[in-house]
Simulated scan of single mutants.
Amino acid sequence: MRVLHAVTLHSPSHAFGGPVRVALNLSKGLRARGHEARLLALGDGFEKWPTAVEGVPAKLFPARRLLPLGFSGMTSPALVASAGRLVRDADVVHVHLARDLVTLPVALAALRAGKPLVLQTHGMVDPSEKLLAKVLDAVAVRRLLRGADTVLYLTPHEREGLDAVVGAPLANTVRLVNGTPAQEERPAPQGAPRILYSARLQARKRPVDFVDAAPAVLAEHPDAHFVVAGPDEGELGAVRARIGSLGLTDRFTVPGALSGEQVLAELRRAHVYVLPSVDEPFPMSVLEALAVGVPSVVTHSNGLARDIARAGAGRAIEPGPEGVAAAVLDLLDPAANRGASLAARELADGSFSMDAVLDTLLPVYGAALRS
């Protein structure tokens, strides 16, 4: 089976975050099972233009910014012009849908061509009062959500949002959780406590809360070190300013965007992983931490919060630095850390393995092909 995965943007800094990681993980899993999977996306920031990403064949088109609207304002006339031909070469078109000028044209081309179409929205298509969102919903989004063979959602909250966008309950939905490949277990943590944040630096993810939690942790562990990693989406200045105002420059490392291998290397050194964001649907960074065996701290509005709390794989907290600090201190206890680490590995291997995800996804593809 030939599967085309279309996603908005791939870049060396991994600026588009989780949807690209999901597309790559699914593609690699499909290829391991004997299927042909490839990636279609905009590309940005490459010195040497890749024809494959992590072993997955990829067709990347140079990104052009038409409007000052972040990812929504990026497109490629060549990609849009080629969309019809690209979807015709696939048996199934799997679009990681956002309100943008990349995934919408590809999904529309698949719909026009009568190709089996699977949409996965990753929480990116939710009710919005923004003018651009209303226009795109009226022109394309509702048509696509109704016309796709299957719409994949992560959480009940996301499903309710999709129904609200359409204005009626969707009948073509299937829940598909994110999965993560099996990872080598981290060694037992050694030396001074190392606490990691690795995600985009944007307001909703609250990296400043991570910084503000540091003084309380340092009061009990004065040798602790904190890492704030990830591409900047507006909060880097605030993060650096807060570190400086607290006088903690020597306690923090801010390395910027990391490659996938570098993220895993940081996770294997970390005692605790923290993602203090709110309304996070199903973060891949947390799944990767769990797979490595790093106890994780998330807020209650995180889509993984209940699973983590139930399994004892970390802590679910109210948003804010006080909760972050208390949870980190709890998990720095050696016995608590060891128990949470084992639970994290079991949770990742049991509920969020790629085999479990593919066992759900492949019947979705089969039903789309039959229809």
Score class of each variant (00 low, 15 high):
Pro222Arg: 09
Pro222Glu: 05
Pro222Tyr: 09
Asp223Cys: 05
Asp223Arg: 13
Asp223Tyr: 00
Ala224Val: 09
Ala224His: 06
Ala224Arg: 08
Phe226Tyr: 10
Val228Arg: 04
Val228Lys: 01
Val228Asp: 04
Val228Trp: 03
Ala229Leu: 12
Ala229Gly: 10
Gly230Ile: 05
Gly230Ala: 07
Pro231Ser: 11
Pro231Leu: 10
Asp232Gly: 08
Asp232His: 13
Glu233Asp: 12
Glu233Cys: 05
Gly234Tyr: 02
Gly234Val: 10
Leu236Asp: 10
Leu236Ala: 14
Leu236Gln: 14
Gly237Pro: 09
Gly237Cys: 09
Ala238Gly: 08
Val239Cys: 06
Val239Ile: 06
Val239Ser: 02
Val239Lys: 01
Arg240Met: 14
Arg240Ala: 15
Ala241Gln: 13
Ile243Tyr: 13
Ile243His: 09
Ile243Gln: 08
Ile243Arg: 08
Gly244His: 07
Gly244Pro: 00
Gly244Arg: 12
Ser245Pro: 00
Leu246Phe: 07
Gly247Asn: 00
Gly247Met: 02
Gly247Gln: 03
Leu248Glu: 04
Leu248Gln: 01
Thr249Pro: 05
Thr249Met: 14
Asp250Gln: 14
Asp250Ile: 06
Arg251Phe: 10
Arg251Gly: 11
Phe252Gln: 09
Phe252Trp: 08
Thr253Asn: 01
Val254Thr: 15
Val254Glu: 11
Pro255Cys: 07
Pro255Thr: 08
Gly256Asn: 07
Ala257Ser: 11
Leu258Met: 12
Leu258His: 10
Ser259Glu: 08
Ser259Met: 03
Gly260Arg: 11
Glu261His: 04
Gln262Trp: 00
Val263Lys: 11
Val263Leu: 14
Val263Phe: 07
Leu264Met: 14
Leu264Tyr: 11
Leu264Glu: 15
Ala265Arg: 15
Ala265Phe: 08
Ala265Glu: 15
Ala265Trp: 14
Ala265Thr: 13
Leu267Phe: 05
Leu267Met: 14
Leu267Pro: 06
Arg268Gly: 12
Arg268Asp: 12
Arg269Ile: 03
Ala270Val: 14
Ala270Phe: 00
His271Gly: 11
His271Leu: 07
His271Arg: 11
His271Ile: 08
Val272Trp: 15
Tyr273Gln: 03
Val274Met: 06
Val274His: 04
Leu275Gln: 03
Leu275Phe: 00
Pro276Met: 03
Pro276Asn: 03
Pro276Phe: 03
Pro276Ile: 03
Ser277Thr: 03
Ser277Leu: 00
Val278Ala: 09
Val278Cys: 06
Asp279His: 15
Glu280Asp: 15
Pro281Gln: 01
Pro281Arg: 01
Pro281Ser: 02
Pro281Gly: 02
Phe282Trp: 11
Pro283Met: 02
Met284Val: 09
Ser285Ile: 01
Ser285Asn: 04
Val286Ser: 04
Val286Ala: 13
Val286Tyr: 02
Leu287Ala: 02
Leu287Lys: 01
Glu288Gln: 13
Glu288Asn: 05
Ala289Thr: 03
Ala289Ser: 15
Ala289Met: 05
